[in-house]
Amino acid sequence: MPETSAPAEALLRLLATMARLRDPVGGCPWDQVQSFETIAPYTIEEAYEVADAIRRGDRPALLDELGDLLFQVVYHARMAEEEGIFSFTDVAESIHRKMVSRHPHVFGDESARSAAEQTTAWEAQKAQERAARAETGTLAGIPPALPALMRANKLTRRAARVGFDWPDAGAVLDKLEEEAAELRAELPAADPTRLADEVGDLLFVLANLARKLDLDPEECLRGANAKFTRRFEAVESRLAAQGQSPADAGLEAMEAEWQAVKAAERGGA
């Protein structure tokens, strides 16, 4: 019998650890009562933490976060196995078959494709898979649970493939101004439903603008969040040096410090 490889041994230990945690007799009380629904938010969180480690270029953190994400896969597979639905082996075999099927130029007899040709072939293969699952229509298969900006980006990319798209970024900016005017018109009535609808339209158009500029709207917003955090914390530090808190200083003083922080950033200080 061939020796078990190091990766296989590590995975077997992880699977055994998960089984022990879920054991109804000697397992962890917290893990015993979890379900797909309660674990799903942690799965999403771990995926974002992987992305964050990559964005920061923190390779040791990436190692740790990838382990956390793998544990999420093992967790869901274990719960499915307990219900007799599928096992971790089934998960691994399923993705193996899918990758082989989607890369006939690697695992079959087809000649090698360029990256652009492979992208086209990949999308065609996914369309066939959606059809096999009776998922019809241009927008079929885009998960509703995706983050809203990410889903808006995917929805409009899919629609653009069949010609339903603005001609350029300038046209999207025109639409943005139109939506902003519609939102402004709703402000006096202050109807929450109407305001939510108009703000949603505005965000949707912004996601399209990012797409037309070949930008990721999620990344754009993350960058804006990071910039706001950095600048606001600098405002707090500057106020603290004056013996003040933001609440004590008031809006006018905070705005003055905010502008000072922005000017310092632009000047490279």
Score class of each variant (00 low, 15 high):
99 M>S: 14
137 G>V: 04
216 D>F: 04
170 G>K: 10
258 W>S: 01
81 E>M: 08
191 D>R: 09
55 R>L: 05
30 W>A: 15
102 R>V: 14
243 G>H: 00
171 A>K: 11
98 K>V: 08
83 E>D: 13
140 A>T: 09
185 A>G: 05
109 D>V: 09
155 L>S: 05
21 L>E: 07
34 Q>E: 11
1 M>F: 03
31 D>Y: 12
148 A>Y: 06
103 H>Q: 14
105 H>R: 14
190 A>F: 14
55 R>S: 06
26 G>S: 07
57 G>N: 06
52 D>T: 09
2 P>R: 04
214 D>Y: 03
197 D>M: 03
115 A>T: 10
18 M>T: 10
194 R>C: 02
266 R>K: 00
206 L>E: 04
200 G>A: 03
215 L>R: 07
117 E>G: 08
256 A>G: 00
132 A>L: 13
188 P>T: 07
189 A>L: 09
114 S>A: 11
191 D>S: 10
70 L>T: 09
6 A>G: 08
218 E>F: 04
266 R>M: 01
148 A>D: 05
182 E>Y: 06
169 A>K: 03
197 D>K: 07
196 A>L: 12
223 G>R: 06
90 D>H: 15
67 G>S: 12
220 C>N: 03
150 M>L: 15
107 F>L: 11
34 Q>N: 09
264 A>N: 00
57 G>S: 08
11 L>Y: 02
12 L>F: 14
193 T>C: 12
213 L>Q: 08
1 M>D: 02
189 A>P: 04
2 P>F: 05
27 G>V: 07
253 A>M: 01
237 S>G: 02
173 L>T: 07
220 C>G: 03
114 S>W: 12
117 E>W: 08
85 I>W: 12
235 V>W: 00
201 D>L: 04
256 A>S: 00
104 P>Q: 13
42 Y>P: 03
45 E>V: 06
131 A>P: 05
147 P>H: 14
133 R>N: 09
160 A>F: 06
5 S>V: 07
36 F>S: 11
